[in-house]
């Protein structure tokens, strides 16, 4: 692989999803480059979660394509790949952080097992090495390593979310999808998680798509932003530009609805 590839990591073209006659999202286009964090904001029902599922290969679009540049530099349409290939990508190159940590974790196995499982899926077999790696990732997400053998059932909400992040990042993915990663957490727990995510994404140079309805989360985590309404992108640009100089009526309404602290 060459040092820097100037081509986008992900190219989205005309992505559309209909649920019968109900529109999920329509004509979504954008490019995402290495190391960029894109926030997708909008109210519930705006199509942002649909978009995330289409992008991450979990739901097939009605039309349009998701094109991914693989580690070897080749370009592939995610929906033209074979199912095993797509699953392999999901286990190795991509991560997905669910709002509800229970969906992203295996609640019945230990924290160490949750992290180690992703490594085993990419071929790691040495138990000691897997355990060491799991330990160091628990440490990076600020989970005390003497909790490594406990199951996530015994963890608080914030700890579960941090464990889910460790499970995703342990395989050094190039692209991570996050669905309301701080939703449902206490404010103080949110701040810790956000700081952690911000640092990890920057240190590892990961590209990310973050769906959130919280503009403060978007400002802190993302470089670029997409504002969605009724299934379509209505405004997009640099995050600070869109939030400080919003041009669409709906974006102005969103920005002006934030309560100052």
């Amino acid at each position: 692989m060459t040092g820097t590839d100037e081509r986008p990591l992900l190219t989205i073209d005309g992505l559309t999803k209909w649920y019968g006659r109900q529109l999920g999202c329509r004509d979504v286009d954008f490019d995402l480059y290495e190391g960029e964090v894109m926030a997708v904001v909008g109210e519930s029902g705006s199509g942002k979660s649909t978009l995330l599922q289409l992008l991450s290969g979990q739901m097939e679009p009605s039309s349009g394509c998701v094109v991914y540049r693989q580690r070897d530099g080749s370009i592939a349409d995610v929906w033209q790949m074979s199912e095993p290939m797509r699953r392999f990508l999901f286990r190795t190159d991509w991560g997905y952080v669910h709002q509800d940590a229970q969906l992203g974790l295996r609640m019945g196995i230990s924290a160490g097992g949750n992290v180690g499982e992703r490594l085993m899926a990419v071929g790691w077999r040495n138990y000691a090495a897997i355990r060491d790696s799991a330990k160091s990732w628990l440490d990076r997400v600020e989970i005390d390593s003497n909790r490594i053998d406990d199951t996530p059932r015994t963890y608080s909400g914030g700890m579960r979310q941090r464990l889910q992040i460790a499970r995703n990042l342990v395989t050094a993915p190039r692209l991570i999808f996050m669905d309301e990663p701080t939703g449902g957490l206490d404010v103080s727990v949110q701040a810790r998680l956000l700081d952690l995510l911000r640092r990890l994404v920057a240190d590892l140079n990961i590209a990310a798509v973050v769906v959130t309805h919280d503009l403060a989360v978007a400002r802190l985590l993302s470089n670029r932003i997409i504002v969605m309404k009724a299934g379509e992108i209505i405004e997009t640009g640099l995050t600070d530009q869109v939030l400080d100089d919003p041009s669409e009526p709906y974006t102005q309404l969103l920005v002006s609805s934030i309560l100052p602290v």
């Binding site: 640009g237 640099l238 600070d240 530009q241 400080d244 100089d245 041009s247």
Partner: peptide
């Protein structure tokens, strides 16, 4: 200044 920085369009 904000226009030069790209903060304003």
């Amino acid at each position: 200044l904000k226009l030069i920085f790209g903060n304003y369009r």
